[in-house]
Design a binder for these strands. Sequence first.
DNA 1: GCGACAG
DNA 2: ATCTTGTCGC
Length: 228
Amino acid sequence: MPEAIDHPWKLSPTEAIQLQRELRERIILQPLPGPIRRIAGADISFNLYSDVFYAAIVVLDYESLEVVDTAYYTETVSFPYIPGLLSFREIPTLLRAWEQLKEKPNVTMVDGHGIAHPRRMGIATHFGLATGSPTLGCAKKILTGSYPTLGPESGATSLIQDRGEAVGYALRSKPRTNPLFISPGHLLDLDGALDIARHCLGRYKLPEPTRLAHQMVNTFRKEQQGES
DNA sequence: GCGACAG
DNA sequence: ATCTTGTCGC
């Protein structure tokens, strides 16, 4: 059974990068151990220029994609946004929501990249290591690497490569829309991540776990703001 | 040195 | 990431 990795989160950017280089050695890319019964979506929301964060994790039944559980948390954060170090800013709040879930999902889709990261330590990978659970990343913009031009049709894919390594897939989820960037986080492999992302597509550009987490965390933020 | 740069 | 309705185009 994979173990959750615990470590300090209040680090300097230099220390954070060093920690990423160490944690990288612990990433496991392999097929899921069994069938997926539940999938979660995780997302963060905040007001522009504010350091008050809101987190939501929504759990869906994998077959019906219906919501079966949700968890929220809000707190003030201090780590700044630095490309490549996103996990140090967003994961602590997500973990507080994660703790509240009655039943942990078989896999979690995180907003951002998994191994499609300069040091292979995107937020989805880091969240997988921190929880000891399978994860994948679903990002709207590429961070590192390159990919061949995709066909215009829905479902078109192309491999993202970074310095000679395959790190994810560009996926056009809807016709003539910009592609999404799918990469395994931890305890999942490249093709498994793509299969899961495709399975979760409905009538919208974003896969349901990510789309619903985004929608629900924004509702939560506005509710919280409206009370004293 | 220059440009790029998840959320 | 967030502020925001309708509107143009494939």
